[in-house]
């Protein structure tokens, strides 16, 4: 029994970590799927969302109440970014979107470093701090809430894209932009919505993460790198793929951190990325 306790503990930890990665990654994959843009600034959006949650918490609004507010704020931010910036990039050569979102990463990163302290900051009075025990497995309440919240929101996004009229329009644009235009779909509107929703997902993820993580100006980098790997593993543009990829990455990271060493925890993750893109570039669940 004891020999199995550690792997079981790691399994649960890995899956819960993976669920949060999934919520960060679905935003990225939705944006990519609809408009072929890899948002290199995605991690910085997460950083913005975490600081927004912190600010609300300092005003006395807890992360779970703050979550919809932060998600809406990021949604509006995403729409504005699409309208004034991404739309122009799409009109340029293909490299423009890589450079443009990279520029945005540098800009937001600089803003955070210039205006905020580089100290790690956590929310005052985190609402969940106990541990739940099931047999030999212990899970912190905060991590459990984060994982469940992320799963619910990821499922909600999937249902939205799969079953609503707007979601259908998004899939149509993803499939064939020109045909979608001919069917009377306003591609600019759909692109803007998709970018906004992608940002809202990472906004919600940021709010959830503040339950157990501290925020600091460069917090986005680690999450963004993981999100790229997740999205590539699952197949760029595939929401189910992102969920599967995220769970896999969560497990790799937690098991890697335990059996190798904490500083090597990302090594299996990156190796997995390289192996998958070389052997199966469309990702585990992607189609080409």
């Amino acid at each position: 029994m004891d020999a199995l306790a550690t792997p079981a503990q790691l399994l649960v930890g890995g899956l819960l970590t993976g669920l949060v990665f999934a919520l960060v990654a679905v935003g990225l994959t939705l944006i990519y799927g609809v408009m072929d843009v890899v948002n290199f600034a995605h991690g910085e959006y997460l950083m913005l969302a975490m600081y927004a949650t912190l600010a609300l918490a300092l005003l006395g609004i807890g992360p779970l109440v703050g979550l919809p507010l932060v998600a809406i704020a990021l949604f509006l931010f995403g729409i504005v970014v699409y309208r004034v910036f991404i739309r122009r990039l799409l009109a340029g050569p293909p490299e423009a979107t890589v450079f443009g979102t990279f520029g945005m990463l540098v800009l937001l990163q600089g803003l955070a470093q210039a205006t905020l302290t580089s100290d790690y900051q956590s929310i005052p009075n985190p609402p969940f701090h106990g541990t739940i025990r099931v047999g030999a497995i212990a899970v912190s309440q905060a991590t459990l809430i984060e994982g469940i919240g992320a799963l619910v929101l990821t499922a909600a996004l999937f249902a939205f894209v799969e079953f609503t009229e707007t979601g259908r329009a998004m899939r149509a644009v993803a499939e064939d932009r020109i045909a979608a235009t001919l069917m009377g779909i306003d591609v600019q509107r759909i692109n803007g919505l998709a970018f906004g929703i992608g940002a809202a997902c990472v906004g919600a993820a940021g709010a959830l993460l503040m339950l157990s993580y501290p925020v600091y100006p460069t917090v986005g980098a680690a999450f963004a790198l993981t999100a790229f790997v997740v999205v590539a593993l699952g197949g760029f543009g595939s929401i189910q793929g992102a969920l599967v990829g995220a769970l896999l990455v969560g497990l790799l990271e937690v098991f890697g951190g335990f059996y190798l060493s904490p500083e090597l925890k990302l090594v299996p993750v990156y190796l997995a990325y390289l192996i998958v893109v070389l052997l199966r570039p469309q990702g585990l669940l992607g189609r080409r």
Partner: peptide
Amino acid sequence: GYDLVIYGAIICLIA
């Protein structure tokens, strides 16, 4: 950080 803001802005504008 301010230098990063300026480079970032330049890259965004150029892109």
